[in-house]
Write a protein that binds this DNA or RNA. Structure first.
Lengths: 121, 121
DNA sequence: TTGGGTGTATTATGCGATGTAGTACACATG
DNA sequence: CATGTGTACTACATCGCATAATACACCCAA
C-alpha cells in the first residue's frame, strides 16, 4: 500500500509537519482505518524523496498525539480513538476554532454562513 | 495609551508572531478601533523588553494583512475593513476552520456541541 | 538459524529563520 | 531646529529543520 502525500518544499511549513498533518487528515477522513499498517519509515522516505529521520519525526509526533502506534520490528499502525481521553486536545482545538471564527466575523462573514458550511460536513 | 500583550519567551511560537497575533486579537475583539493609534515601534519594544526590529516585523505583517497602516513620521494606526476585499483570506480561514472541525468530530465532538459554542459568541 | 524488514538512537554537518544590536536616513510636528 | 515617528541596512549569535551516515534491537518468514 502506497500512501501519497503532497509535500511542498517551498512551503515555509516544515516537511515533518506536512507529513504529520497529511497523514492525520487521511486518518480523520477515514481513508486510513484503525489498526491499518502505514508505510515504514524507510519506504515513506523513499517514496517522498525525504530523509528517513524527517519521516520518523512525523511518525513520532503522531504517536505522541495518539493517532498511530509504533511496534519495533513490525511497523506503524493507525490507533483507535479512546473516548473521554482527549479533553485537553478538544479544548485546545475548540479554542482555535473560536479564534478563527471571531476573525471571520470581523471580516464580515455571518454566523449563518459559517453554520451552513459546518452542516455541509 | 499602553497596550499590554502577553509574551512567552519559552513559547516555540516566534515573538514577532505573538505580538502580531496579540494585536490582531485586540483589533478583532474591538478593543482597538479604526484609526486608533497604537504604540510606536520603540515604545512597544521598551514596554515588552523586546528588540525594536522584532516589533517592526510584527507591525509590517499586520500592515500586509490589512489590519493596520503605517505612516512615516506619524505612527501606526488601526485600519478599517474593506468589505469584499478579503475573499482569499476568508477562504483560507474557512478552510482552516473546517479542518479543525473535522478533527473535533473525529475525536467524538458532535456538530450540535460545536454549533452551541459558536452561538455563544 | 538466518536474513531482511521494522522501529529506534546517535553523531555530525549545512542551512535558514529568529532575535538582538547598532547605526543611519526620511518624514511629520511643535 | 529638536523630537518622535517609520524604515532600512549590516553584523552577529542562536536555534530548529533537514540531511547523512551509522548502529542497535526487535519481529518474522524462509
Amino acid at each position: 500500500m502506497i500512501i501519497i502525500i503532497s509535500i511542498d518544499l517551498k512551503n515555509p511549513k516544515p516537511i515533518f509537519e506536512q507529513v504529520r498533518d497529511g497523514l492525520k487528515n487521511l486518518i480523520i477522513c477515514g481513508v486510513l482505518k484503525t489498526d491499518e499498517k502505514i508505510p515504514s519509515v524507510r519506504d515513506m522516505a523513499q517514496n517522498l524523496a525525504i530523509n528517513p529521520n524527517t519521516i520518523q519525526k512525523a511518525y513520532r509526533e503522531l504517536e505522541t498525539e495518539g493517532y498511530v502506534y509504533q511496534v519495533t520490528g513490525k511497523g506503524t499502525f493507525v490507533a483507535s480513538i479512546v473516548p473521554g481521553e482527549n479533553y485537553e486536545k478538544i479544548e485546545k482545538l475548540m479554542k482555535e476554532v473560536l479564534e478563527l471564527v471571531r476573525e471571520l466575523i470581523y471580516l464580515g462573514v455571518t454566523k449563518e454562513e459559517i453554520n451552513a458550511a459546518l452542516d455541509r460536513l
